[in-house]
Design a protein around this nucleic acid. Structure first.
Lengths: 337, 337
DNA sequence: CTGAAAGCGCTTACAG
DNA sequence: CTGAAAGCGCTTACAG
């Protein structure tokens, strides 16, 4: 009952080779022949079998999207824009979530599960150890890393250190002297996570302005969720009640921090100021001032890079996007002592 | 350089048929033979070509996940739990985002893009018109609908009307008499969206308690985002300043509503109470009281249903999950006039 | 329990 | 510009 390429060939009175070429708009088919093939295919409602054409051509027209957790805003946002870009180009998006991606020990990822299934890969916020990297390369398809830079591969992201530094300067400009920091932890596989670079940006800025930069001003969580930010803020403020401003390495953590501050009977933006990083869609509703990154653009860029490398192999490229201060009510002037 | 089934067969001294059977643990292979095949395959590092096996078997071991927008919390959460369930069962997740999924006219979706690519489909929050449904059925694979029920198909979701009714009763219990509603619009393809059922639950409850239920207490938005909730709330409260409580058809809208209330100089939970529906991960941080649905469980259930139908075709099933009131600070007693 | 062989439905040198 | 035919790498009746 299904229409196959042979049916189209017979109906048109040509060979399957010609049908195949005409349908894919390859050169070497007469204009008139091509038109007849297209019309017949249309009339019969012919859809080429994707598996058959993959097996024969060696191309799957799928891109693998490897990431930690789709339910987190940042990943969902990137996936969304990447997927649309891929689809417009005729590619499918195969998503893979990694288990236990954070914490001190991350589970090993075996890229072999992608073998033969994708023509390219986009990896979000993950750093691969040498063994994983070896297996990844053995797949023989282009790979683009987003957020976390893997040496020797394409990268799309922001300047984490500079972004955190600007966030910190904003707090300093508002008169704050005791500025805490909420950071994430690294794990065995990822020694240079964005959260560490952001921490450096915060620390260096404090030093440059000759403000206190004691380790106890920094509080690290495992996964940068709102609830972990909430708990971390309680610990931080219990330890250092003199803190008047907090720089959070992520917006979601910052949102949890705002809750903690509120529950302490303090007012965010008056008693304690807080600034996040990411530009979460809900930050305006939260009133959270943040350093926004152009997340959708990064997702589109990653998709374009990987597609481009499929057609034209090239040297790894690095695309760094600018971040912008999005002011809301969570940052105010430092309170008078 | 790649290892193929023939290499394994030759090395083991058996036929490719035996290798194929042994590797898939099919009956009819001697224990000892099977072990030798497995060892050889392991030693050679053999990975069967997924495209070849798909073409030969007619099974893709992929499930299509069709949804409006991965960057929205609810969809990301469902996708995340579905994907993990599918992967554990050895299936890949192919995601598709629909353009223009809301608003008065939704773009038509042609399920044919999934033809030959998936063994089953999960559809989130979408209702298909007769033509789309026809094309969907012609794919010949099981389909599970989540959130929006499509007659004749599997369904996983909640009792929207009852959930909204309980949310409304909670407000009434707190003494509120003038209760507004934030709802979403339907479109040409979806006459019975959850948002409409929730609206009915709100309306019927008001009537049952003989409270005012004028149309002007309801404000509808196109897409139920925080920013639309923000604007809708401004309109609603400008029109009816006597409202003391709002039931929002989604948490994200409710978050925007809280921002609007705050900016009017009012305090959420004191001057105006608000309750949402969904159980958004950020609702505790927001202090938003909500009727929580077990989103991850729903995603897991959808995956299990579709996998089950692949093996055992069966009558459509309907799985309705309970919702629970999650109290935070956005709902308080009605203020004395 | 095992194997030879056809077949899944395309694509792609190769020849003309 | 077009076609005959091999080939992509598996799976699956069928026969023994």
């Amino acid at each position: 009952m299904d229409i196959h390429i042979e049916d189209v060939a017979r109906s048109t009175g040509v060979s399957t080779a010609t049908v195949s070429r005409a349908l894919r708009n390859l050169p070497g088919v007469g204009e008139e022949t091509k038109k007849r093939v297209l019309d017949t295919a249309q009339a019969l409602g012919y859809n080429p079998s994707p598996t058959a054409s993959s097996l024969a051509s060696g191309r799957t027209h799928s891109i693998g999207l490897v990431q930690p957790d789709m339910s987190r805003w940042f990943f969902g946002k990137i996936l969304e824009s990447s997927e649309r870009t891929l689809r417009e180009a005729g590619y499918d998006a195969l998503v893979y979530s990694l288990p236990d991606y954070l914490g001190p020990v991350r589970q090993r990822f075996d890229p072999t599960v992608l073998k033969g299934k994708v023509d390219g890969i986009i990896v979000l916020s993950l750093f691969f150890d040498p063994e994983e990297e070896r297996q990844l390369r053995s797949l023989g398809v282009p790979v683009v890393f987003v957020s976390v830079q893997q040496p020797g591969f394409d990268f799309v992201g922001i300047d984490d250190e500079e972004t955190a530094a600007r966030a910190c300067r904003h707090l300093i400009t508002m008169g704050h002297k005791h500025i805490g920091h909420l950071s994430g932890q690294t794990n065995d596989k990822c020694p240079v996570a964005p959260t560490q670079r952001r921490r450096v940006g915060w620390l260096n800025t404090l030093r440059r302005f000759r403000l206190e930069s004691a380790p106890e001003l920094d509080e690290a969580v495992t996964i940068m969720t709102a609830s972990n930010g909430y708990l971390a803020t309680q610990r931080l403020l219990a330890r250092r009640p003199d803190i008047t401003a907090i720089l959070s390495s992520s917006d979601e953590m910052a949102m949890g921090a705002m809750q903690a501050i509120h529950e302490m009977g303090l007012t965010v933006g008056r008693d304690i100021s807080i600034i996040g990083i990411d530009g979460h869609d809900l930050s305006p509703a939260f009133g959270l001032t943040t350093m926004a990154q152009p997340v959708s653009q990064e997702g589109i860029c990653a998709a374009k890079l990987v597609l481009n490398h499929i057609e034209h192999p090239a040297q790894p490229r690095t695309e760094v996007y600018p971040t912008t201060l999005a002011e809301h009510r969570s940052v105010g002037p430092a309170p008078r002592p």
